[in-house]
Nucleic acid binder design. Structure first.
Lengths: 340, 340
DNA sequence: TTTAATTACGAAATCGTTTTCGTACTCTTC
DNA sequence: GAAGAGTACGAAAACGATTTCGTAATTAAA
């Protein structure tokens, strides 16, 4: 009795294995009476089909993978929440892989997933734009995947992103109208789509308002915690007059806050800052942080929906439509950190 | 050429399937020369074994599950980070399941995992103490699992927790010494081990310092966001004199901050607060929040290590030792929110 | 020289499902 | 009443790996 399986179940019922299997799948070949008997005994003996046998035979795993740069990050955990809400509904399982912002790690993970362990993948890329080989291998293998937030625009795959350019423009415009004279853009790297779009919006706004290029600073802080701390601190000493910072990610804004506390820079008096962020404490910070907030949960949901749609359509002739490219809106919250 | 498998690989090599399989597993039965040939062609043709066939035959999945109450929570995402660091090293895969604090959901998830999809489970329980049936089914099925943070102490399973009692005592003592007169404990529910231990420490400290019971308030705010907001707000109106709040979880402390902002209660002047928290912004809040910080990453690591140890020892005779029960230390950070 | 051990491989069973195909049997229909 | 359609089930092949067992060929031991 150690482990229940369909063979024992069939024997117990005096039926063949195939009949039992069909009954469990509610096949039209099996009459109602038999189905009931099978279902009843299956429940009583607590029979649960072996997922691997099933996956092996059906060539589908009821599992998706989520590949993200980091998890201890409000944005990504909210996205996972959204993904899980859909996956749970569709009885899919969710595998998590973390790249720690290392492109090679991402490649390795994706390559590993070529073995069919998952039916589809949701990716927020940490890859550089010049390395698409692993994505193309996915396409070749017919494994559906969807980018969210950070996409690789050279790859032919659905994307769920936010209006990064517009948001970047809007944030920068806000800084300009808050009487900033110098402007800094805090970035992790110049290889990430979402961040670059934010930067483009930033530059476009500065251009439109005819800000002198000498007053524009792009600070690539990188993904290393201690290093980025130093880079930001160095860039604040000496402090440019009326500096307005647009931080492309929450982490760098938090670091900036710490640095300002450390070297006694007053926000918003000496320095104004607005940041992309999903911090639940943004309004409680000292001073309250102005933010651009992405609809993280919805991003997860939309990306998952798109993925499942692609999984379902796999093999079928794809309608020659444009590539799904969902763009959601971010919300701007003006708070004290950018007050005049 | 669609999908590479061991059969095609064997044919290509003019070897039998079994020889190839053994070569790939570096069996002593196969001579070095053959192994090299096999490995070389496997790499060249990008052969990756089908994980389901492998799992089916070996009866092991190289996968663990993490079952948590919620994910958009600094503590849990840091724990997952720790878990992933170990899993990644051991080439295990990590499935995430979220219970949303619903005990029935947890049961359902655990029961589902009885089908052998995972080799082991890490659980932070959202269950009530009077419902252990699903854990016992895991034990019966021989599926190893480890509790972390929130354990069910009636169940015979390894645990990784923190020194919640001591930390609770210490935090409360700090509030007492900060000249508070009234004391409130903010709790999610009275069914969670970790939280109850914190409460016990709280009560013990108040008792030791002979605080009048009428000055002691236990506020069970529950897990529903809007409801808990109301409960906390109501309990602050009217505001007891010199109230010191010990919040057992970060979320409730944040809510308290929001409420205080809304109804104009000054922290720490009118109300002092200390909270369990892994907020990276605790020091940046207005005012900076005194915290008890759990070593979340280490909790994840330790729990994973314990689990993998149990997975490895499965089937072997268990040494009659005491149940592994790792207890890690939290760190107290005194900040402005409890300043005299 | 004979026997035993070792080396290096292959055939086939196995894991637990799903699915295809075959087949009795009953029921229509003209 | 013969042919066709429909019903309800079972046998067996498949999915792709791992593993047991068997066995030639070679080497070592007696």
């Amino acid at each position: 009795m150690e482990n229940m399986n369909i063979k024992k179940l069939a024997k117990e019922l005096n039926l063949s294995v195939s009949t039992v299997s069909k009954a469990l799948h509610d096949s039209y070949e099996i009459k109602a009476e038999t189905k009931e008997k099978v279902l009843a005994l299956a429940k009583q003996l607590n029979y649960q089909p072996n997922p691997f046998a099933s996956s092996l035979r059906r060539n589908s795993s009821k599992t998706i993978a989520v590949v993200i740069p980091e998890i201890a990050h409000n944005f990504f955990s909210l996205v996972i929440n959204g993904i899980e809400s859909i996956a749970e509904e569709l009885k899919y399982h969710v595998l998590i892989y973390i790249t720690h912002e290392i492109p090679e790690k991402e490649e390795q993970i994706i390559r590993h997933l070529l073995n069919g362990r998952v039916d589809g993948i949701l990716i927020s890329s940490s890859g550089t734009s010049n390395n698409n080989a692993h994505y193309h291998e996915l396409i070749q293998k017919g494994i559906p995947f969807v980018f969210f937030d950070r996409a690789n625009f050279d790859v032919d795959a659905p994307r769920v992103t936010t209006d990064d350019y517009q948001a970047g423009f809007q944030a920068t415009e806000h800084l300009i109208k808050s009487q900033c004279k110098h402007f800094a853009f805090l970035s992790l790297s110049n290889q990430m789509s979402a961040i670059n779009h934010r930067k483009d919006g930033f530059l476009a706004a500065l251009n439109q308002y005819q800000i002198k290029p000498s007053h524009v600073h792009i600070i690539e802080a990188g993904t290393d915690e201690t290093l980025s701390f130093q880079i930001i601190r160095d860039s604040l000493q000496p402090l440019p007059e009326s500096l307005g910072i647009f931080s492309s990610v929450e982490k760098l804004a938090i670091q900036t806050y710490h640095i300002c506390k450390e070297i006694n820079i007053r926000i918003p008096k000496q320095l104004k800052i607005i940041s992309f962020s999903n911090l639940p404490t943004a309004a409680l910070l000292n001073p309250a942080l102005s933010t651009l907030t992405q609809p993280a949960f919805s991003i997860g949901k939309e990306a998952a929906l798109l993925l499942f749609q692609n999984i379902k359509n796999k093999g079928k002739i794809q309608p020659i439509t444009t590539l799904p490219n969902v763009v959601l809106k971010s919300t701007i919250f003006i708070r004290e950190s950018t007050k005049i």
